Amino acid sequence: MQQVLRYRTVRIKSHAMQFVINELPLLLLCPIGLIYAGMDGLPLTKLVLALTLILSLILLYRFIYLKRMTYSVGNEQFVFEYGVFQRKVDYLELYRIVDFNEHQTFIQQLCGLKTVSIYSGDRTTPRLDIIGVKNGCEYVSLIRERVEYNKRKKGIYEITNR
Rank of each mutant, 00 (worst) to 15 (best):
Q77E: 15
M69D: 05
Y82E: 11
L44Q: 13
N75R: 06
R62Q: 13
S56I: 07
R87A: 05
T52I: 03
F78H: 00
D99P: 02
L60T: 12
K67Y: 05
M69T: 14
L60Q: 04
T45K: 14
T115K: 01
E102M: 04
V116Q: 00
V73Q: 01
E76P: 01
R68Q: 14
E81Q: 15
T105E: 08
L94G: 03
F100P: 01
I54Q: 02
V48C: 07
G83P: 11
I58S: 08
R68F: 11
Q109P: 01
F100S: 01
S56W: 04
L49W: 04
R87C: 02
Y71L: 03
V84F: 06
R87T: 10
Q104M: 10
E81M: 12
D90W: 02
I54S: 07
N101V: 00
T115V: 09
Y91Q: 13
L55C: 12
L53V: 10
K114W: 00
V89Y: 08
L113P: 03
F80M: 11
I97E: 04
Q108T: 11
V48T: 11
G74D: 12
Y82R: 15
F78A: 00
Q108M: 13
T115S: 05
M69C: 14
Q108C: 12
I54G: 07
G112A: 10
V116C: 01
E102K: 03
I64Y: 06
L51R: 01
Q86Y: 09
T105C: 07
Q104E: 09
V84A: 06
F106Y: 12
I97V: 15
T70S: 11
R96C: 05
Q109E: 12
F85A: 11
G74S: 14
V98I: 13
N75C: 07
K88S: 12
I58Y: 08
V79D: 03
K114Q: 08
V73G: 00
I58G: 07
N101P: 00
Q77L: 13
E81P: 05
T70R: 12
L57Q: 07
L57V: 12
E102V: 12
L59R: 02
F85T: 07
L113N: 05
L110V: 14
Y71K: 01
L60Y: 06
S72C: 15
Q86M: 09
